[in-house]
Design a protein around this nucleic acid. Structure first.
Lengths: 205, 205
DNA sequence: ACCATGATGTGAGCAATGCTCAGATTCCGG
DNA sequence: CCGGAATCTGAGCATTGCTCACATCATGGT
């Protein structure tokens, strides 16, 4: 929400903000968060350090703004994938596969900066809330799909939330960096098999 | 492994290192990583700043040392829980429940500092490896248990790894901070139900 | 066309931080 | 008791995040 302080009203200031964000993303990617100085960001952006602090309250604020952008794009991509599944009335295994692939795509989008953004999100209370809200949105979409295929057991909402969290972690930890002796494809198959069983239609009793 | 630079040989220097680590843990807990200065750590530890830098190469190194300690204890706790299950020949649902509860206990052990440690681990390549090694160790123990109860499907090793990663994320995201309208107990039940289905014995075909 | 007001841009410099280093102090084997 | 190694010390250097007093630019009313 309120990242920064003054919000840009004229065209040239919006350009300035865009330059700053682009420069920050580049430098964070190249040298990491700590090794990036605000003065260098301003320098690469071609603006003075004072301008930077007119639109961002903090060094953290820079990363927070990038994180919000990233989270928004991720949510859209995953929700689009789910919407496509709904349109073609895909069965459960296809649903799980699409979800995992969409998550993998989102995480691959900018591998150099993704871990930084997640890190930062974890120790900024406002961004933790944002991350949970994002999970909630995706889980809600998934829950609707689970009901369509009669999956998720007695509590599709909770099942969907657990699935979103679990699949996300597995994509990070195993799909993108497969363990030695396994290919990404094998991991994906195992993942789909497991979640199909976990979310499979289960009668109330 | 080689956290720091010189390694303490005499008794008094081991005491110094212990004081420094204790002070660092306290200050990180109280004020976070960025707001904690190395000089304050030395001051609270009752040693000079020079002594601190004799045993820790970096400010990061302090947190890395704490993270290693934390990871080691976590691994031990979870492995103990699995060993107990093995001794009493517990069935699958009990296995999953024990795993989730052990993970929850480990994460609750020092809530003030746990997220910081995880954060830090995520952008230090050596600690990322440590974290993956830890996951691997726990997954190996779990895989053995899965074979005992004939669970895990055609590839118990991969299934165990995915389960460890998934359960860990769910404990963080849903069990310790249940979503509105759900209790921790309900979440645990759903979690156990899902993983019991996911890991349930499945014939080769 | 003009100017007044607010939006935007500038960069030297301050306060604070991570970390070094030259030397003082303490410990231990012989 | 002594020589060298281990340990400890803390003033200070280099660097960083960030502020502030001021310059410049854009816009809308007359």
């Amino acid at each position: 929400m309120d990242h920064g302080r003054r919000s840009p009203r004229q065209q040239r200031s919006r350009q300035t903000v865009a330059w700053i964000l682009e420069a920050a993303a580049q430098l964070f990617r190249e040298h990491g968060y700590l090794a990036t100085t605000t003065n260098k960001v301003a320098e690469r952006a071609g603006v003075s350090i004072g301008s930077l602090y007119q639109y961002f309250s903090d060094k953290d604020d820079l990363l927070a703004a990038l994180a919000e952008e990233h989270m928004e794009r991720t949510a859209r991509e995953v929700e689009d994938a789910l919407a496509a599944c709904a349109r073609e009335e895909a069965p459960l295994p296809r649903l799980v596969g699409a979800l995992a692939e969409a998550a993998a795509r989102a995480h691959m989008h900018d591998p150099g900066i993704h871990p930084l953004l997640i890190d930062q999100a974890l120790h900024r209370p406002d961004l933790v809330d944002g991350l949970r809200a994002l999970e909630g949105r995706i889980a809600a979409s998934l829950a609707a799909e689970l009901r369509r295929v009669h999956g998720g057991g007695p509590d599709p909402a909770t099942a969907a939330l657990l699935a979103v969290q679990g699949i996300n972690a597995q994509v990070h930890g195993a799909l993108l960096w497969p363990p030695p002796g396994r290919t990404a494809d094998e991991v994906l198959k195992a993942l789909v098999r497991m979640w199909t069983a976990a979310l499979g239609a289960a009668p109330e009793r």
